[in-house]
């Protein structure tokens, strides 16, 4: 699959946007294909966004197209619902296991024992969580493959027509801009319309949830949710356009960066991937396997600290 010529990643845009500056710096001479499927029913409310992007845009309307497909293809709609239900159960059960593993880790860490055992058991705790994450991703992938094999989206007329229209629209674009929003909804639509196979040679400009969706693994996180201590959880695979990183937008609201233990656990869990926090106004570009044009991005480190992300590799 041909890779994008560059992927530009930005932090949250809601209160302190840098999208316009990032867009202008691309010097794109073609149209910008816009994906706001993460906004769900508000997908078409893109006036402000269009103005930030300079006006020459076409919204690919992935959410609306999905709704049209399901309205006209009840069989696929039922199958899609069933698959989503399975994914939801898979996520629930994964979360239950994850919370119990975290609890076991906490209890073991509190026990008095020789330090050698503690180190070994700590390692075991992390490995158990890593294995669970990997298995969860595999379970999700299995469900996606089974769905594709059973329903053949690439050959199904109701889907084909929209995919063709999208391919034509994208063909005339030099940039694909992917907004954030509901990240599960977004990756669902990106997969439904095979967007990953359409971005080759183009610049992908993605921010917040959109940035998460173009990485190879979407991690949901919130250190202080209202229902109790938050445990980050893997949701599903992303488009994989920016491999080897876990992208964490909204760190100002969602991460307790001064809690070194939490930061350490997060980083250790996802090694060798690097955990990058994307605060508002942050920016980085991924091109030819390297990062450049880095501004404001924080790398979370194994020692629990966070530092400006500088590495170009």
């Amino acid at each position: 699959m041909e890779q994008p010529s560059a992927v530009v990643l930005l932090g949250a845009q809601r209160f302190d946007p840098n999208l316009q500056a990032a867009s202008e710096s691309l010097h794109a001479d073609g149209r910008i294909g816009l994906i706001t499927a993460g906004w769900q029913e508000r997908e078409s409310e893109d006036e402000e966004l269009v103005s930030h992007l300079g006006g020459n845009t076409i919204n690919l309307r992935l959410h609306e197209r999905g709704e049209q497909i399901f309205a006209g293809d009840p069989e696929l709609r039922a199958a899609h619902r069933e698959r989503q239900d399975l994914l939801r159960h898979t996520q629930d059960f994964y979360r239950i296991r994850l919370e119990h593993l975290r609890e076991a880790e906490r209890i073991i860490a509190q026990r008095t024992a020789p330090s050698g055992i503690h180190i070994e058991e700590g390692r075991t705790s992390v490995e158990a969580i890593r294995e669970l994450d990997i298995r969860h991703l595999a379970n999700c992938a299995r469900l996606h493959v089974a769905f594709e094999l059973r329903w053949g989206l690439g050959k199904r007329p109701s889907v084909l027509r929209h995919r063709a229209e999208i391919a034509e629209a994208v063909g005339g674009c030099s940039v694909i801009a992917i907004a954030g929003g509901h990240v599960a909804s977004l990756i669902n639509r990106l997969a439904l319309f095979g967007i990953g196979s359409l971005v080759g040679g183009k610049v992908v400009l993605a921010w917040s949830g959109g940035a998460m969706a173009v990485s190879d693994r979407v991690v949901l996180f919130h250190d202080d949710p209202p229902q109790g201590p938050g445990v980050s959880e893997v949701l599903d695979a992303g488009l994989g356009l920016v491999p080897g990183v876990v992208l964490l937008p909204h760190p100002e609201q969602r991460l307790q960066l001064n809690d070194r233990q939490r930061v350490h656990r997060l980083v250790n869990r996802f090694l060798p991937a690097r955990c990058l926090a994307l605060p508002a106004r942050s920016h980085l570009t991924f091109r030819d396997g390297k990062f450049s044009s880095i501004e404001g991005v924080l790398e979370l480190r194994l020692d629990g600290e966070n530092v400006p992300f500088r590495s170009a590799s």
Partner: peptide
């Protein structure tokens, strides 16, 4: 109510990154 309702019915907070 906040702790109870959000535990029983977690909202989309963990899914939404605007």
């Amino acid at each position: 109510l906040r702790e109870g309702l959000s535990w029983l019915f977690p909202g989309p907070l963990s899914f939404i990154y605007e």
